[in-house]
C-alpha cells in the first residue's frame, strides 16, 4: 500500500511540475505584453508616426524616420536575400548532391547559428571598412545575411515534401526540368514558401545587433543608401538607455509598434496558409449548395 501511495504522490508532483512550468513560460509573455500595452500604448500618438525626432531637450517628435528606415533596410535586404535564398533552396532540394551543394549546406548551417552581433561585424568589415562610413547599405546587407539562411533552409525543407513521382509526372509531360521545378514544384508550394519568407522577414525586422554599427542610426529621415540610417530597433535601444523621460516614453511606443509589426507578420504567416484552405473549402461548399438548388 505504501508503495502505491508513494507512486501516486510522485505522479501528483509530476503533474504539478508540468502545470507550473507551463505557467512559468506563459507568464513572462503576458507580462511583456501587459507592460507594452500600458507603457507603449499610452505613449503612442499620431505624432509618433508622423514626426521625425526633435532636437535634444524639446519634447515631442516621433519615429517616422526610424519606421521608414526599418522598412527601407528590411526591404533592401529582402530584395537580395529572398531570391538568392529561394535559388539556393531550390538548388539544394532539386540537385543537392556534390561538392558545391555540400559546401552550400555547410555554409547555410553555419550562418544559421552565427550570433546576430557577429553578422554585424561581418557587414562592418565588408561595407563600412571599405566605404569608410556607416551606411544603410551595410545595414541591409547584415539583414540579408540574417534572412538568407532561414529562407534557404525552409525552401529546401518545403520543396523536399513534393514527392518524387510528382516531379516525374511533370517530366513525363515532356517538360524540361526547369519548367517542372518552377511551374509545378515551386508554384505548388507557393503558400508554404510565402510563410517561410514572411517569417524570415519578420525575424529580420526585429534585429538590432546587426544594425548597431552598420546602419548605425540617425536622427534624420534619409533615403540615401550610402548614409547612416535610423531603424526602429536601434532607435528604441538608443532612447531606452537615454536619460530623458520623453525619449524613454518613445522607446516604449517604438517597442509597441515593433512588436505589432513583428508579431503581426508572424501570425499572418502562420495562419495565412490554413486560412486560405479554409476559405477555399467554404467557397466550395457554398458553390455546391447552389448547384444542388438549380
Amino acid at each position: 500500500m505504501k508503495v502505491i501511495r508513494q507512486r501516486k504522490m510522485k505522479n501528483f508532483f509530476f503533474y504539478f511540475a508540468l502545470i507550473s512550468s507551463s505557467l512559468v513560460v506563459i507568464l513572462p509573455l503576458l507580462l511583456v505584453f501587459i507592460f507594452l500595452l500600458q507603457k507603449g500604448g499610452a505613449s503612442l500618438s499620431l505624432d509618433f508616426f508622423l514626426n521625425n525626432p526633435k532636437p535634444v531637450g524639446e519634447t515631442g517628435g516621433g519615429m517616422r524616420h526610424a519606421i521608414l528606415g526599418s522598412f527601407y533596410m528590411v526591404g533592401l535586404g529582402s530584395f537580395v536575400a529572398v531570391p538568392l535564398g529561394l535559388l539556393c533552396g531550390i538548388y539544394l532540394s532539386e540537385f543537392g548532391k556534390g561538392k558545391i551543394a555540400n559546401s552550400l549546406r555547410f555554409t547555410i548551417d553555419l550562418l544559421t547559428g552565427v550570433p546576430s552581433i557577429v553578422v554585424g561585424i561581418f557587414s562592418y568589415l565588408i561595407f563600412v571598412v571599405t566605404m569608410k562610413s556607416f551606411s544603410a547599405m551595410a545595414g541591409a546587407f547584415a539583414l540579408s545575411i540574417i534572412i538568407l539562411p532561414i529562407i534557404t533552409r525552409t525552401t529546401e525543407e518545403i520543396l523536399k515534401l513534393i514527392p518524387r513521382h510528382v516531379k516525374e509526372a511533370g517530366l513525363a509531360l515532356g517538360l524540361p526540368r526547369w519548367k517542372v521545378i518552377l511551374f509545378i514544384v515551386v508554384k505548388g508550394s507557393r503558400s508554404s514558401l510565402m510563410t517561410g519568407i514572411i517569417l524570415a522577414i519578420s525575424r529580420a525586422a526585429g534585429e538590432t545587433a546587426p544594425l548597431l554599427f552598420t546602419a548605425f542610426g540617425s536622427m534624420y529621415l534619409s533615403y540615401s543608401p550610402t548614409e547612416p540610417m535610423a531603424s526602429l530597433p536601434v532607435q528604441i535601444y538608443n532612447y531606452a538607455i537615454s536619460p530623458y523621460d520623453d525619449w524613454q516614453r518613445q522607446a516604449w511606443a517604438g517597442a509597441f509598434t515593433l512588436i505589432i509589426i513583428v508579431l503581426g507578420l508572424n501570425l499572418f504567416a502562420r495562419f495565412f496558409f490554413t486560412r486560405k484552405t479554409i476559405y477555399r473549402a467554404i467557397k466550395n461548399k457554398l458553390f455546391k449548395k447552389n448547384e444542388d438548388r438549380t
Partner: peptide, 24 residues
C-alpha cells in the same frame, strides 16, 4: 495553443525583452 504561445516567445525581438528587462 500553448505551442503557438511558446513559439511567439521566439518571435519577440530581443530589444523588446531588453526594454522590459531594464524597466521591469
Amino acid at each position: 495553443i500553448l505551442g503557438v504561445f511558446v513559439e511567439l516567445i521566439a518571435a519577440i525581438p530581443s530589444i523588446v525583452f531588453g526594454l522590459w528587462g531594464l524597466y521591469y
